[in-house]
């Protein structure tokens, strides 16, 4: 691992200030960043440790929603009584990801900022526009089975790996940030994540030094919450596809994981065939939401798999009341 200097931030604003300089990075759980540093993919010159900041509380908001501090661990968030009761899709998504050890360390802010798991992003011998801008994309003609089918570009087809973020998208959560000058921002997830375009190395709209302070959940949406993940093994694997659903008749919402550079949601498509049976409704929703999909030969299976997964979710929970 390359050498870096280390400091422990005393306040959120000081952390933002200390991370303004090029080459400086925040470190929280470290479960993704340190792995990438060992592989020489991330090369920070300076690490700003934010673990001792007071950003680890889950608090009720005035409108009945919930604010989740950026440092709340995945385990603590999935276990929180209000999340289990009112935002079960979030608990379900979190426990579908990683392992117990990683969830004990990984944070809410860090989960949002975890980087792609594209095999070519990880292979420093091969071109990757996300790792080395302008070097090309080896995945376009390579092993693309796990990668994205929509929202991609000719520069990058990596998918976003988070399960948690898919649930946050279906919940209409917002990301709260703080800049070094004290300015705060609130970003919807679709404004927080960039699509790759010509600049796949830029994954979010965060500015230099801008710190995620937390995530805000709107008032409980009601409905039946489901997170269904399809993967190559039963546990401790990234999604091939996933569906985060809040089932509530015609008002049902769906977000999709494993298929795009960010959690994928198309609110207009959610209304498609809303009165039809599960199979027809799933087909209509996926056909509408993925009309612009550009899969490769190797990952073309993801669109029909998503259709069947959504169909299964609708069918299983149309009468049972769903997961708790």
């Amino acid at each position: 691992m390359r050498a870096f200097t280390y400091e422990r931030a005393a306040t959120p604003q000081a952390a933002a200030g200390a991370t303004l300089a090029e080459g400086a990075k925040f470190i929280a759980g470290g479960t993704n960043l340190l792995d990438l540093m060992k592989l020489d993919i991330e090369r920070p010159a300076h690490l700003v440790d934010i673990n001792r900041l007071e950003l680890n509380a889950v608090t009720d908001t005035a409108d009945g929603g919930l604010h989740v501090g950026a440092l709340v661990t995945n385990t603590d968030l999935a276990s929180h009584p209000r999340v289990r009761a009112d935002y079960a899709v979030l608990s379900r998504a979190i426990v579908a990801g990683a392992s117990g050890q990683i969830r004990n360390k990984a944070t809410t802010g860090g989960n949002l900022l975890q980087r792609a798991r594209c095999p070519y992003f990880y292979d420093t011998n091969l071109p990757c526009n996300k790792r080395e801008p302008g070097s090309g994309c080896a995945a376009l003609t390579g092993l693309s089975r796990p990668l994205a089918v929509i929202g991609t570009s000719d520069a990058c087809i990596a998918q976003h790996p988070s399960d948690m973020a898919v649930a946050l998208r279906v919940l209409d959560a917002t990301v709260n940030t703080l800049k070094a000058d004290g300015t705060e921002r609130t970003l919807a997830l679709d404004d927080f994540y960039r699509l790759p375009g010509d600049t796949p190395h830029l994954e979010t709209t965060l500015e230099a030094g801008e710190l995620i302070t937390g995530v805000t959940l709107p008032p409980p949406p009601g409905g039946t919450h489901v997170y269904r993940k399809v993967r190559d093994r039963a546990s401790y694997a990234f999604a091939l596809v996933s569906v985060a659903a809040i089932l509530n008749g015609r008002e049902s919402r769906f977000a999709f994981g494993g298929v795009a550079p960010r959690p994928w949601r198309d609110p207009a498509a959610e209304k498609a065939a809303a009165d039809a049976g599960p199979v027809a409704r799933a087909r209509a929703v996926i056909d509408a939401a993925f009309a612009d999909a550009r899969p490769t030969e190797q990952n073309a299976f993801k669109v029909p798999l998503l259709r069947r997964t959504l169909s299964a979710v609708l069918e299983e929970h149309s009468t049972t009341g769903g997961q708790k």
């Binding site: 390359r2 050498a3 200097t5 280390y6 400091e7 300089a21 080459g23 920070p44 010159a45 300076h46």
Partner: peptide, 24 residues
């Protein structure tokens, strides 16, 4: 806590890296 060595903001470079100061 101030970093004991200060290539703060230095872009990552190839070649030999300075060994950072140890921390207690």
């Amino acid at each position: 806590m101030t970093p004991p060595t200060a290539p703060q903001g230095a872009a990552p470079s190839e070649g030999p890296q300075p060994v950072p100061a140890t921390l207690p």
